[in-house]
């Protein structure tokens, strides 16, 4: 069976693409063979995995690819069950669009802030263009760093209705444990009790995207 390909994209930086990619892949790897493709020249995914201690390596391999991304992804689909592509925070190089042309789903992490919402408008346009080449592409907005008591977080749903892209029911809360896991080259699954709430929300997210 060919791998399902999940691209994580947003042309705005700081929305949590790499954090989502790493933890999503860690969760998927508990189900089946998974690979992270670092398509971001900043190489954050590789740096994250490289921080893991020898006795506890990051559970998913990271490979860095920039050129011929669609061809390489197609080739790797035969060897894995899930591929997670961490896209660069730009649409200018076309790398994110290239990844999306061979993806099954694209997850768009958006912070509960006006600036992030405005930036996502352009990505939504780009996805419409990609769908000319990949009709089956399923885009989803994921609200990241939610703060349930914050008025902006609670008002997000109304704003997301303005997009032609569905929002996932399971968002991710703002949690320090995500940053801590990066510092340890790990995922929230390996952070003990402190990581459990985050691991549970990643699991719920995975359940939702695998069913959608």
């Amino acid at each position: 069976m060919l791998a399902q390909v999940f691209s994580v994209a947003n042309q705005k930086g700081g929305t949590g693409k790499t954090t989502l990619s790493m933890n999503l892949a860690a969760g998927l790897s508990k189900r089946a063979r998974t690979l992270i493709i670092d398509a971001d020249p900043q190489g954050s995914a590789g740096q994250w995995a490289g921080l893991s201690p020898d006795e506890r390596p990051f559970p998913v391999a990271v490979i860095s690819i920039a050129s011929n991304l669609p061809r390489e992804i197609k080739r790797m689909r035969e060897d894995y069950r899930y591929l997670v592509v961490d896209c660069p925070p730009t649409l200018e190089t076309g790398v994110a669009q290239a990844a999306m042309t061979v993806s099954d789903k694209v997850l768009i992490p958006v912070l509960p802030s006006p600036v992030d919402l405005w930036a996502s408008v352009r990505l939504a346009e780009a996805i419409e263009q990609v769908k000319i080449y990949n009709e089956a592409l399923q885009p989803y907005i994921l609200v990241n760093q939610l703060e349930p008591r914050n008025a902006m977080s609670r008002g997000m749903q109304q704003a997301l209705d303005e997009f032609n892209i569905p929002a996932l029911e399971n968002g991710l809360r703002r949690r320090a444990i995500y940053r801590s896991s990066a510092l340890e080259g790990s995922s929230v699954y390996c952070m003990g009790k402190r990581g459990e709430p985050a691991a549970q929300e990643i699991d719920a997210l995975i359940e939702e995207i695998l069913k959608s």
Partner: peptide, 15 residues
């Protein structure tokens, strides 16, 4: 918006 066709064939040399 950048055309998708130009993307896959000519990735950024800088990247």
């Amino acid at each position: 918006v950048i055309a998708v066709t130009s993307v896959a064939k000519t990735p950024s040399a800088a990247a």
